[in-house]
Design a protein around this nucleic acid. Sequence first.
DNA 1: TAAAAACGAACAAACGTTAGGTTTGTATGG
DNA 2: CCATACAAACCTAACGTTTGTTCGTTTTTA
Lengths: 208, 208
Amino acid sequence: MEARLETRPSRKGIILREAARLFREKGYRASTLRELARRAGMKGGSIYYHFASKEEMLYRIMDETMSNLLMGLEQEIRGVRDPVQRLNRGIEFHIRYHLENQDETHVTDTELISLEEDHRNRIERKRSEYEQAFMGILEEGTQSGVMSVANIKLASIAVLQMCTGIPYWFNEEGPLSIAEVVERYTDFIFWGVLGRAGGGERAREAVL
Amino acid sequence: MEARLETRPSRKGIILREAARLFREKGYRASTLRELARRAGMKGGSIYYHFASKEEMLYRIMDETMSNLLMGLEQEIRGVRDPVQRLNRGIEFHIRYHLENQDETHVTDTELISLEEDHRNRIERKRSEYEQAFMGILEEGTQSGVMSVANIKLASIAVLQMCTGIPYWFNEEGPLSIAEVVERYTDFIFWGVLGRAGGGERAREAVL
DNA sequence: TAAAAACGAACAAACGTTAGGTTTGTATGG
DNA sequence: CCATACAAACCTAACGTTTGTTCGTTTTTA
């Protein structure tokens, strides 16, 4: 419920933080509790005082991530009316959160397969909610005529997919700042490859 | 070298095919050789007559996939001059191959982490080659003025990322055909969300 | 009948998990 | 101020499985 990773680091918080790092580094299945315990500064068995199982840690990481995404997005676009602005804010929030919580989001995006059925269903439900928020924005934008999207669901998934993949290649020490990445991606999502080019007519013929 | 999965199914081919299915279903680490052997119609130890290790099978799947992607793309855009047409063909090929070889491509896109260092480097090199082919197209298109891409590398990765993710949600029995998916995605990549909308001016102001 | 393919049984290592004992911090009562 | 009580936090050692892999033998194929 509460944002545990944000507050003063409790023992559980530290373990989850290290778990996210480790799971991202080696993958959930290849990560051992002994290695995790070592990084958290204790011995293997001690983890079980804080968590009932290895899988519970994975679920907690993913559930908190999805909750933060859902609440954060809602808060970010609340009160904003213009669909273009809403999409703008949504994209920026999504990218920012993924870049500022790379370990947790990466695990959340890749380890669904490692969850037990019940937990997996819960996470999938939240993810679906999150996608529908974006679908709603594209829907409004299209109906008001300012956007032109043939298949709302497809476009939403495509947008999220490409933004979600940013942490794969983004490097903190690289030449690009987070703000620049946000700008380039937003630009691409809004205008595509041809949208603002001079040779629009020529391209239009070639494609259509 | 040769397209082994395409020819008359050899014993090795069958095993690799089932391995790709299994690895995708449960993840590489969670897949056991005994289960794989069962699916391929034999007992656990027999696999080792055909392959030296579990990891070798994973590497073979990924290497063949990357080789097919590289050669296929090259063949698809060879002789085509117009950058827009080249991009069009590249996207279509990429999506088609991913949808027609879902197990292998999914494994290739998610299990890099499970490869030993030497093998991982080899696959990463081919993946980088593949990305650069797309970067080249965007480069030509931008320099000739028909496209407008601020950051070539970013855009290439974004395009590939969103297309690569299609098998995650695509359903053979669903309402969309492969051709339709290709069309929608190509459309989105070319024109974005605003590019062909009537309210272009209004949106332009809101975004810029 | 010789080579190719598969079997069956076993091994050593690694894993998640458990149980019981030990330390540490803190509140309580005299 | 000290002694006691108690719970939270951690350790140690082990258990039972599962895993990738090996190897000598048997079956199948050509």
